[in-house]
Each structure stands twice: as structure tokens, then as C-alpha cells.
Design a protein around this nucleic acid. Structure first.
Lengths: 134, 134
DNA sequence: ATATAACTAAGAAAAAATTCGTAGGAAATT
DNA sequence: AATTTCCTACGAATTTTTTCTTAGTTATAT
């Protein structure tokens, strides 16, 4: 009777390991545990297959993932769009470390210097777009 | 022989609760545990005094905080500048949820719509500054 | 001087997150 | 049909993070 806690109160907040898995799924689209696990091991760090499996089952339980059953395999996919989830975790971090101000978070990233000139241009264009819509 | 782990390998990554405490210290400057705890209780959530104390001691241990002893009281302050630490945690999140691209993180925040026109202007000015420096 | 209040220290408990081991079933291979 | 391989399920152990309890010290006030 505690299993569904996250589903009920507010939106589910993925943990760090959960974010890693979500990122793989966003990249590759719906995938089996095997695929996710292989990707994690290639691109990030050593994880045991059953650890990934267990975590994905927990995420299913929390409502972070959905799955379809195809024969013997299970195919998982994120329950939320990447955009929505990214926005959610950013807001969480802004609250925690930036006095709740996403804008100051942006300033910090930009001030940090590893944004390329092309990216800066792109961001500027986006701002101009936003200002037009106003 | 495990206590100093974080100090040795890489930079210390604050946990969520630790970030809350850092945020108070960044806001108010060097403070006693009492002050930090009161602030947490007023502005964020209920925490027991000794919980805050314990956590700050752990943070001292990890090298996240420094302290000066004044008579009976201990005055804590962040070991790192706010800018540095914020940059660090942002990069962590970018790695975890944005494919390592801080710029796409910025786009996500801006696209999200709760940045005020004034803030947008400010960000745009900042970008122009950055482009000049180039 | 005694009591009260405010502080630190530190171990332990509790909660949350992560990893692992084992069991069992289905499919493929020999 | 037996063996090997690959999968899921799931409890349990581990690790990390957070909270709390108790003890002891110092200052302050009565």
C-alpha cells in the first residue's frame, strides 16, 4: 500500500539512475532492458543486467515508464515526453540551488563559457521568437 | 577509511538536503546552525535542529563547508563560491538528463515560458556581451 | 551555587536509492 | 528431449542519505 505513493502526490521525480535510463530511452526510443543495459554499459558505466531490470520495473511501478509485452520480451518507453520531464527536473534544481529562479540558472550556464558561438546564436534567436509571440 | 572518499575523488557533489543548506548560507552569509535551521523551517520545511546540525557536520567533513569557532558557537560558510557550485550541479544535471549539452538545457528552460520579458532581455544582453568578448 | 537554556558530538535508526543473487520459465540449439 | 541461453520476477543485501535520540559542555539567569 505504499507502492503507488509517487503516482498520487505530485509528479514522479526520477532519481539519478532513473534519469540515466530515461535518457537512453529518449535517445533510442522504446527498448528492451537488454538494449538499455548495453547502452548504459557502453556509454556510461558498469551496471549489472538485473540491476537495470529491477530499476526499470520500479520505474514502471512509479509510472515513469510504460511497457508493452511482445512475446517473451518487454518493451519499455518513457511515460512522459522528454520535454516535460526535463522541465520538471530543471525546476526542481532551480528550486533547490537557484532560489527558484530558472532565469538565474540560465545566466549561470551561459556565463560558464562552454556554450559555443553557434549555440549562443541559436539561443538568441529563440529569445527573439519568444519576444515576438508576446 | 571511507569518510574522506568524496574529498579525494573529484569534487564533492551536494545532495538535495545539502543544497538547501548551501542556499541558505549563500543567501545569508556565514551563519550558525541555529540560523540555518530557522531559515529552513521558515522558508522550506520542518527540520529538527539536530538534523540540520548533523548534516552540516557531515558537510564540513566532506569539505562542502568550512567553519570558524567563536566562543561557544560555530559559524559555517560554504567552502566553494556559489557560482562554482551552481555550475557544478548544473553540469551534473546536463550530463544526466540533457545528453551533456548545457545549451539544450537552456533552450528547455526558455521554451518553458515562465521567464519574464525582463529576464529575457537580461539574458539577451548577456549573450551579446559574451559575443563581444569573443 | 543551582537550575535553565542553548549549544555540539556522535551513534543509531529510519528512509531512500541502488545493486545483486537466485529462481523459474520460455525459446533456441544440439 | 536434453542442454544451453536469454529472459522476467522478486526478495534481499548494500549503500547512501536523512532524521532522531541521547549525552555532555558551556554560558546565562535565578
Amino acid at each position: 500500500m505504499k507502492q503507488q505513493k509517487r503516482q498520487l502526490d505530485g509528479q514522479p521525480e526520477p532519481t539519478k539512475s532513473e534519469l540515466e535510463i530515461l535518457q537512453v530511452l529518449w535517445q533510442k526510443g522504446p527498448s528492451t532492458v537488454r538494449t538499455v543495459n548495453d547502452t548504459l554499459n557502453e556509454e556510461m558505466r558498469d551496471v549489472n543486467y538485473t540491476s537495470t531490470l529491477k530499476l526499470m520495473q520500479i520505474m514502471l511501478d512509479k509510472g515513469l515508464l510504460l511497457r508493452a509485452i511482445e512475446g517473451k520480451n518487454h518493451i519499455y518507453r518513457p511515460a512522459e515526453q522528454q520535454e516535460i520531464m526535463q522541465t520538471r527536473v530543471i525546476k526542481g534544481l532551480a528550486t533547490l540551488a537557484f532560489g527558484g529562479s530558472p532565469a538565474s540558472l540560465v545566466m549561470r550556464v551561459l556565463g560558464n563559457g562552454d556554450t559555443s558561438p553557434e549555440e549562443l546564436e541559436e539561443i538568441k534567436r529563440m529569445i527573439e521568437q519568444l519576444e515576438k509571440q508576446k
